[in-house]
Write a protein that binds this DNA or RNA. Structure first.
Lengths: 336, 336
DNA sequence: GTATACAATGAAACCGCTTTCAAACAGCGG
DNA sequence: CCGCTGTTTGAAAGCGGTTTCATTGTATAC
């Protein structure tokens, strides 16, 4: 068993009071250099490490932030999580992983947990509107991703320009020469799904193209299903706007099974630019969301909010960028 | 600002002592039913949530476990992490994400941090031998993955049968008809690298095949480099044993660039069976490590160690399994 | 030499909860 | 009715830090 050294032990050994030890450790007040040296020696000798729990109790802050997501297995969320951990570390925060499986009860449970742990903030991804009350009353700053924030509600929002993403992706296909473009439309309960669809529709209108779409989710399985539906409903499709890089992968797989080639017969644009999209062959053209920036910004906003030094605006929009790679190409117009 | 309700407030409202409230909440002793009801009402009325930090301080346990890994971006570690979170949740633990980037100082820092947070356990992946002292003295049970445990050292080890993995993968290629099999050999500083190589060597000996290998790491970039080296050193290779699914992907990419086909010209066997290996096209043949089982077992071992009820053996070996998919196939022997 | 300001210091209070301990009380047998 | 268990109960003492507050000692001003 480990014998734990307390501040009292150090004080006794150094022949000073606990208060003095605390002051040396935190630099909160001047201490006689001679005593300071004795304290430092005593700390080294005993191997004293301040108990963070006791500190948290007094300070009402545990320097913990929660990352509350449906599942960390989602590569997009995973990359954001990595950035959050890194930025948090630099700010002296630790991050607690909270997988909710999209279950409202797990969401509430984790938020309450964080609250009773004196957490200092949370980054949350959820499509559960019932969470607003909990978020407003949890006692720490919350950044929600990919959701617009109601004015009267205290969270901070970070999202990417989904309209622009939908627009860029669609226009890219048009410029490559596609005319029968089908969108694997993301869930309309998410603002991301709605805005990207709007972007796509505007491109269709601009170029006089008839909009086509089939609903999908963002995960691989729903992508497979959607892909099959597209191949049977729109067998002449020549360009696909996937809802994510995962569903782009699904589409590619189904397409290969049907004997069609990418990009010669059908072009595909993914969404997110998860690292995976450049690892596979062919590399996937995709709309890049700045995942690292999202994660870092989220943590910075929390840090700003805690410090209270600057005003933190409630809504933050990040730009997206099209990455043209091997699943799209300029179509050889001599054939058509 | 949120006004926080303490146990004193509840006690006052219910007209009992804090002790009684505590007893009702924890069921640690009998309480008069009438008072119990008053306490429950008061709790509901005030919305009281016990402060976990105060509890932790007294109990010397925060019900937190750390997941200490080089990077959660590694898909293999990510899938294990997901399982850890899930199992931990069921045991009432939260998990703190600790990315170390393989930096010894970040490893130490996180272990000390966990220690001073009264963490209840940690799952650690590291190739840093200097960590032993810290692990032994951190005050909570530690499970290390993919490392054998020295007897005099108090951690618990969970690893997969790497010898078997190397053996199965190599023999599978032989059975598919490959004779010029090259291993992308994993780092020999890891036991996993050593054991898989042994498995491969034994298969070579068994079938009278000359061993060939090029050193690689487990990540995609080192896989690319290794793949190029293999193509130039062993241009007649007909089977590749990748060090991971990532490096298998690297090899596939380089191979496609060189115009060779998989599996017709060269077959590939990956390692890990990360989910990705079935999402890509072609689906990758791979050696499956039971990632979910690894994660869950690690948490269960920690829980067992904490409860102290059963003896926890220090070494745990899990079996691996070959998943034959589209990057390998029975070779048409009429050609050779 | 005395009054005043100021830095250093330790005792004690406190953060919010759990548990010990002893007192109060109820039930029961004799 | 008394003494003996056995159960409820609240006051108080921690858990291990930080901070307040009053005290001491030293330096500066008059």
């Amino acid at each position: 068993m480990i014998i734990l050294v307390t501040i009292r032990d150090v004080a006794k050994l150094a022949g000073v009071s606990q208060a003095t030890v605390s002051r040396v450790l935190n630099g909160t007040a001047g201490v006689d250099p001679e005593k300071e040296k004795r304290v430092i020696n005593a700390v080294n000798e005993t191997g004293f490490k301040p108990n963070e729990v006791a500190r948290s109790l007094f300070r009402k802050s545990s320097r913990i932030i929660g990352y509350v997501v449906p599942s960390i297995l989602n590569l997009f969320l995973n990359e954001i999580g990595r950035a959050i951990e890194d930025e948090a570390f630099q700010h002296g925060f630790r991050v607690i992983l909270c997988n909710t499986d999209e279950k409202p009860e797990k969401e509430s449970l984790y938020i309450n947990m964080l609250s009773s742990m004196n957490a200092d903030g949370a980054v949350i991804i959820s499509n559960n509107n019932g969470l607003e009350a909990e978020i407003s009353s949890c006692g720490f700053p919350v950044v929600v991703l990919d959701q617009k924030i109601d004015e009267r509600y205290s969270a901070i929002s970070v999202q990417c320009d989904n309209y622009q993403g939908g627009y860029l992706a669609a226009e890219h296909l048009v410029q490559c020469g596609c005319r029968k473009i089908v969108q694997m439309r993301g869930p309309q309960k998410y603002i991301s799904g709605v805005d990207r669809f709007r972007g796509y529709l505007d491109v269709c209108e601009k170029y006089g193209i008839e909009p086509r779409y089939v609903d999908s989710n963002y995960d691989f399985e729903s992508g497979l299903e959607c892909a099959r539906k597209i191949l049977s409903t729109f067998p002449d499709a020549d360009g696909i706007l996937a809802s994510s890089d995962m569903t782009a992968l699904s589409f590619y797989k189904i397409l290969c099974q049907s004997g069609r080639r990418v990009p010669e017969d059908v072009m595909i644009v993914g969404y997110d630019n998860v690292r995976l999209s450049t690892l596979v062959t062919p590399e996937f053209t995709t709309v890049a969301q700045p995942m690292e920036k999202i994660g870092r910004l989220a943590v910075q906003l929390i840090a700003d909010k805690i410090s209270g030094q600057k005003e933190v605006p409630p809504n933050h929009m990040l730009p997206v960028e099209l990455k043209a790679r091997q699943t799209t190409t300029l179509k050889d117009r001599t054939l058509s």
